[in-house]
């Protein structure tokens, strides 16, 4: 049965990695639901957050195929309850009394007000963003854009640190052996 997974990928900050990563998805026949790329908290290391909805076994294999890419450091896969998830959406909506009431009730930020339209920003879960969209739709949405979901794991430290410690120790051992 298809389930939702959040795949976080840590890679060296090099040109073309995103393309290498997405190639794995097309090759292994897994659709990307959303994608976000950003620097991580560790200098020189990039982080990709990719949402998929697929069979758990297929996702487990996909994760290993991504990790196989030489410039990818480590890939983690989470279920939605292991992470804090957020995404951001912008709505350009026709101005009206109803819309302005709705804005007040739904904790939506107003970014810009024009004579004809109003630009709204909503940050939250995918469901909240969809819900607001449904509510605004009857009033006329001129434009809509939504970011990929981003996720932070609930454990305190970045799990990548442990991987980096492991490879660093391996490197030190190798250098020691060579110097002998």
């Amino acid at each position: 049965m298809d389930r939702e997974f959040i795949i976080t990928i840590f890679s060296e900050n090099k040109v073309g990695i995103l393309s290498q990563v997405t190639t794995v998805f097309t090759h292994r026949n897994v659709n990307i639901e959303s994608i976000a790329a950003s620097p991580s908290a560790i200098e020189g290391i990039h982080k990709y957050t990719i949402m998929v909805k697929n069979d758990p076994e297929r996702v487990a294999n996909l994760v290993k195929q991504i990790e196989k890419k030489v410039d990818v450091l480590k890939v983690f896969c989470y279920t939605p309850n292991e992470v804090v998830l957020q995404q951001l959406a912008l709505y350009k909506v026709k101005r009206s009394r109803n819309v302005e009431d709705m804005v007040r009730r739904h904790n939506v930020r107003i970014l810009e007000i024009h004579d004809e339209y109003i630009v709204l920003e909503k940050t939250g879960h995918k469901e909240e963003i969809d819900e607001l969209y449904q509510m605004l739709a009857p009033h006329g949405i001129y434009q809509f854009v939504c970011s990929g979901q981003v996720a932070i794991i609930k454990s305190r430290r970045e799990l990548l640190d442990e991987y980096l410690k492991y490879v660093n120790a391996k490197y030190q051992r190798m250098m020691l052996q060579e110097n002998k």
């Binding site: 890679s11 060296e12 030489v70 450091l73 980096l164 391996k170």
Partner: peptide, 8 residues
């Protein structure tokens, strides 16, 4: 080359 940290 004998070591690349992202490649074990």
């Amino acid at each position: 080359k004998k070591f690349i940290r992202s490649y074990q």
